[in-house]
């Protein structure tokens, strides 16, 4: 038996390594379509296009819910009192410090647009509930204020804001 432990790779070793490498490359390339097929397909992506929301029918103090990319979006027409409450908070003491001005578009203090998904584990908080007249998540008791900032409960972060812009004073485009 000629068992040689030669340190130098031979031509035969090179052939074996080349074959194994090419085969391994093929196996890896095969995974690409198998993994990619789980990502959102073209129709799902197209259905996630931006939506426009007309603000005129929303009364003072009313919250409406619209859907964008399968997520509930709250559009809150805040009252003067709610705006003042949201602005007069000691930001430094909040679990996720953020001034109210950073959560609305400049000049549109009365319009609070946010993704209505609790940052704890994804339940939908109920509007106009809880001690801060903001949002209350019934799953695990997280409480948000009228600016959608977390005030009590297990949720770590403020309610997220969707990308949106004002097309006019009474129309926004979400997405």
């Amino acid at each position: 038996m000629t068992t040689m432990s030669s340190a130098e790779p031979t031509r035969r070793d090179f052939l074996y390594i080349a074959t194994a490498s090419v085969a391994a490359f093929g196996a890896a390339a095969t995974l690409v379509p198998l993994i990619a097929q789980m990502n959102p397909d073209a129709s799902t992506i197209a259905a996630g296009a931006p939506i426009e929301v007309d603000l005129t029918p929303i009364a003072d103090g009313q919250v409406i819910k619209v859907f964008w990319r399968g997520k509930p979006i709250y559009v809150n027409h805040r009252t003067k009192k709610q705006i003042e409450e949201a602005q007069n908070v000691d930001v430094a003491k909040l679990p996720d410090p953020q001034p109210d001005s950073a959560r609305v578009k400049p000049g549109h203090d009365q319009w609070q647009v946010l993704i209505g998904i609790c940052t704890h584990l994804g339940c939908i908080p109920i509007a106009h509930q809880g001690p801060y007249d903001g949002y209350f998540c019934p799953c695990h008791g997280s409480v948000y204020d009228t600016s959608g900032r977390i005030r009590q409960g297990p949720a770590p972060l403020n309610l997220a804001l969707p990308p949106y812009e004002f097309l006019s004073d009474t129309k926004i485009r979400i997405g």
């Binding site: 052939l15 074996y16 080349a18 074959t19 090419v22 085969a23 490359f25 093929g26 390339a29």
Partner: peptide, 13 residues
Amino acid sequence: IFLIVLAGLLYFT
């Protein structure tokens, strides 16, 4: 092209 290269290598191996 990949399969032909692979088949060739496998043949020589």
